[in-house]
């Protein structure tokens, strides 16, 4: 994803999808897009890798749940056993509330961290922001992004996918 990239601007989602399909057929790889919303079609079309956010969440949730269970077990049976109405010291059904809540919280937090790390966010300063036109990506603009050095020359691109405009984004 490093290096100079070429952004092809399109009017709408359909033109973007068509262009992505055409360039994919042409053998262009390492493509990305910038769109105002999550376009599920692009996930397959650009062969975007699946992230490991969910496995991270699963592991974090299970680990935190186990951890808080062990803490409850230890404090209730070893640390300070208190006989409360003759109930068993290891009252595991009552311990499950904290296990579940803590597990979910840990999964959510680990997922957020994994999401930011995977996306290398926060990146407040990025070459993408330099051209003024790219700010349309969060409004109504649709951009296909490809590595500048592997891209077909501009005439070919013009003929193949007819973008509204082409923008080069520095490394």
């Amino acid at each position: 994803m490093s290096g100079t990239r070429l952004l092809l601007a399109f009017d709408g989602p359909d033109a973007l999808l068509a262009a992505a399909r055409a360039l994919r057929a042409e053998g262009v790889t390492d493509m990305d897009a910038h769109t105002p919303w999550h376009m599920e079609e692009l996930d397959d079309l650009l062969a975007l890798p699946r992230s490991n956010v969910r496995p991270v969440m699963l592991v974090a949730g299970l680990a935190a749940g186990l951890g808080i269970y062990l803490l409850q077990w230890w404090t209730s049976t070893q640390g300070y056993p208190i006989n409360s109405g003759g109930r068993p010291l290891n009252s595991w059904p009552a311990f499950m509330f904290a296990v579940f809540e803590t597990g979910v919280l840990a999964a959510a937090f680990a997922g957020l961290v994994a999401f930011l790390v995977t996306c290398r966010l926060p990146t407040l300063n990025h070459p993408f922001f330099v051209p003024a036109a790219t700010e349309a990506a969060s409004d109504h603009g649709f951009f296909l992004s490809l590595p500048a050095q592997d891209a077909p020359d501009r005439l070919t691109l013009e003929r193949m996918v007819a973008p509204v405009r082409m923008i080069e984004v520095g490394p």
């Binding site: 926060p122 990146t123 407040l124 300063n125 922001f129 330099v130 003024a132 790219t134 700010e135």
Partner: peptide, 11 residues
């Protein structure tokens, strides 16, 4: 819009 933040902002 151009770049809002200085390069140091990332760090």
């Amino acid at each position: 819009m151009a770049q809002i933040f200085h390069a140091r902002a990332n760090t």
